[in-house]
């Protein structure tokens, strides 16, 4: 089998971070929450990414921080994907007034800045990782809803669905057995693109102090703290958390690019 280079690189990046999170206890040389050196040490053999303002090892915080962001992102994408897909399938299939009302609500939310909505939800729910995941999930429901509904509308009119209806198959069976399988390739693209968005939103909520409480390691929050030491020249407190967030997001973006490319080629041939 021939893997698209974007898909390959994207998957490699994501898998590397997943491994980092799973094996954090083995990989991290020090505790992420306790001082292991002097304050603001630049990168050296002992601390390959330097130490922060409290003398904690930046590399160890990066390694453990991957757990926070990956957990929030996967949880958020799973919730919003499930909610958006089910809503989109049902309203798209049923149609009528319910469809119009829900579509209108979803379109309005979609037009609203997702980050600001996520901020409002996190503030209301209270700042912790689970609530951040819920806030991000609710924000992105319309993304899935719109895509799935649009596809359902176009598939609905095709022959095999008409036939299944004529045969008197129950609605839920038609939706999940006959329509849903056709949506999987598009869903894969949206899932990976949305994961990139979710990474950025999680990092942004953390950067604004809405995800974790200190001393929990978290890339976005660590970047925010590092910002205070920019004039001290502690570039390593910025470069590593910021770089990791960007790299993870790029991983998901490449994955979605790759999937959409190979899918486009397939449908072309």
């Amino acid at each position: 089998m021939n893997i698209n280079p974007y898909t390959g690189i994207g998957l490699a990046i994501i898998l590397a971070f997943v491994l980092m999170a799973l094996l954090a206890d083995i990989i991290a040389p020090y505790s992420p929450t306790e001082a292991s050196g002097n304050v603001l040490e630049p990168p050296s053999i002992h601390h390959i990414m330097g130490t922060d303002n409290l003398g904690r090892d930046v590399f160890s915080r990066i390694v453990f921080g991957s757990r926070t962001i990956l957990m929030v992102v996967f949880l958020a994408v799973a919730i919003s994907g499930a909610l958006g897909t089910i809503l989109g399938l049902l309203t798209g299939y049923v149609g009528g007034a319910i469809d119009r009302v829900i579509s209108f609500i979803m379109d309005s939310i979609y037009a609203f800045p997702s980050l600001i909505l996520a901020i409002a939800l996190s503030v209301a729910l209270g700042p912790n990782p689970l609530n951040a995941a819920i806030a991000i999930a609710l924000t992105y429901v319309p993304t899935y809803f719109r895509m799935i509904r649009g596809q359902v509308l176009s598939i609905k009119s095709e022959g095999f669905v008409e036939m299944a209806k004529a045969l008197g198959l129950p609605t839920t069976r038609i939706i999940f057995r006959h329509i849903f399988p056709h949506l999987i390739p598009t869903l894969a693209v949206v899932f990976s693109m949305n994961s990139a968005d979710a990474v950025l939103t999680e990092a942004a909520l953390s950067f604004l102090g809405l995800t974790v409480q200190p001393p929990t390691p978290d890339w976005g929050f660590d970047l925010y703290k590092g910002r205070g030491f920019i004039l001290a020249g502690a570039w390593w407190m910025l470069a590593f958390p910021g770089g990791m967030i960007t790299l993870l997001a790029i991983g998901f973006a490449l994955l979605s690019e790759g999937i959409s490319q190979s899918h486009a080629v397939k449908s072309f041939e």
Partner: peptide, 26 residues
């Protein structure tokens, strides 16, 4: 150009902003 499009889109604004501050400011 396509790669530019998909990568700039997922840059994390604070990370990019602080990077530019480091380079051009400091």
């Amino acid at each position: 150009a396509r790669l530019y499009g998909s990568i700039t889109y997922v840059l994390f604004i604070p990370a990019l902003g602080l990077f530019l501050q480091l380079v051009f400011g400091l």
